[in-house]
Write a protein that binds this DNA or RNA. Structure first.
Lengths: 218, 218
DNA sequence: AATATATTCGCACTAATGTTCTGAAAACTA
DNA sequence: TAGTTTTCAGAACATTAGTGCGAATATATT
């Protein structure tokens, strides 16, 4: 792409800053003042050059009809991409029951904290939530205190996957590795200190599965 | 927040779409045509109502001086937030040297794969990159095969933090827990099978530190 | 129904803003 | 240096676009 003159660089930066601050583009006279340029025609002239060079789009006879071209936007590093925020529903500690999205209140999670995740990984974010781990009960799954576990609502999982399961007869909910063995289902805790247990398959309800772990060390 | 009339909803949606399409806000007459409204003054009137209700910002006597308020933006679900993409520089395996950003080519990472991370966590993304872990050499740090290690360029770290360090005398680079002990520096591998080693402190150069770990189980 | 309040209409007016033109200055080129 | 191209100045001009206002409707209140 063609090299820009100092003035053009200045103008381009000014436009960026202006949009960043106001959320709408500057007028030619805004640019004139902001960049200490002597005439509106000079601004107009250079805007045309910038357009030719592909750095911005200009719509003639439209006031403030400027927008930065994608090339320029992506030239700013780092690249900005969309993510989706998922609710952080609470904490999960050793053995203790942990929060699950209530009944149909799935959409109303306004009160809860949110965690940003890359959209590419979790799609629309529907049915996805996060739990913060307390304690080292899942240390054998390489999940430690303070980690964030990202979960997706699911009614079944593959063998060996980690999932939140409810034992109907106890009405308890825990996070375990899941192994279906025909009529019975084996649940292995993530901590080898604890025993694996098997249950009748129809006594085990899969609520959601673990899709990712995020550990921030700062 | 106050309830909106049909017309106001229509106008608000139109503004959103217009900005989305043009990258600059609509004029009053754009809105008038786009929403089939009979008079510019009606548009103006409703824009004032929308401003009162907090759904948009309006700058008087500025053409196209409209911008959506944050409340409105975040009312769209799921919430979209900025992230930054950091380069995935390569893989790191047990003991083997691993890729580092070359000299000053930091800005030119165009060729490399990118990974999205929440902006809130890593700021501008400057000096941040990711490495994919191969093998279980860091199993004791709860980092396993396939994990993504997020690193930040740093010249010093606190004791106990995991960092990429270069042993000047060997010209080797590894990922170790870092403990400064005055004149000497102890480096502990993340795998307890391996020995910790100490070096003269000025033989150890900190290149970057581990700030996060991302594990995707899918 | 009567009164108050909110919204809509059209239109004229004015301010904001893009465009154009001519010539000069500056930067390049041969 | 002479010639060519690019950039700049300044001002007049044209269009776009926001504003104001009285009157007409509509909607709500009592």
């Amino acid at each position: 792409m063609k090299k820009l003159s100092d003035k053009q660089e200045t103008i381009l930066s000014f436009i960026e800053e202006f949009i960043d601050e106001h959320d709408y583009p500057p007028s030619i006279r805004d640019i004139q003042n902001g960049c200490a340029i002597s005439s509106t025609s000079v601004v107009s002239y250079n805007l045309d050059r910038l357009k030719e060079s592909g750095y911005l789009n200009r719509h003639s006879e439209v006031s403030r009809g400027l927008s930065l071209s994608n090339q320029r936007e992506s030239a700013l590093s780092p690249v900005s991409i969309d993510t989706v925020a998922v609710p952080l529903l609470g904490t999960i500690a050793a053995g203790s029951p942990f929060p699950m999205p209530e009944n149909d209140t799935w959409s109303d999670l306004s009160g809860s904290e949110l965690v940003d995740l890359p959209q590419a990984i979790i799609g629309t974010g529907d049915g996805i939530y996060a739990l913060k781990v307390r304690g080292d009960s899942m240390i054998d799954a390489l999940i430690s205190d303070g980690d964030l576990v990202i979960m997706e609502q699911a009614s079944s999982v593959r063998n060996g996957q980690m999932a939140a399961v409810r034992i109907k007869s106890d009405n308890t909910t825990t996070l375990k590795h899941f192994y279906s063995e025909g009529p019975r289902t084996r649940l292995e805790p993530a901590n080898s200190q604890m025993q694996a247990m098997t249950f009748k398959s129809d006594d085990v309800e899969v609520l959601s599965r673990v899709i990712a772990v995020w550990r921030y060390l700062g």
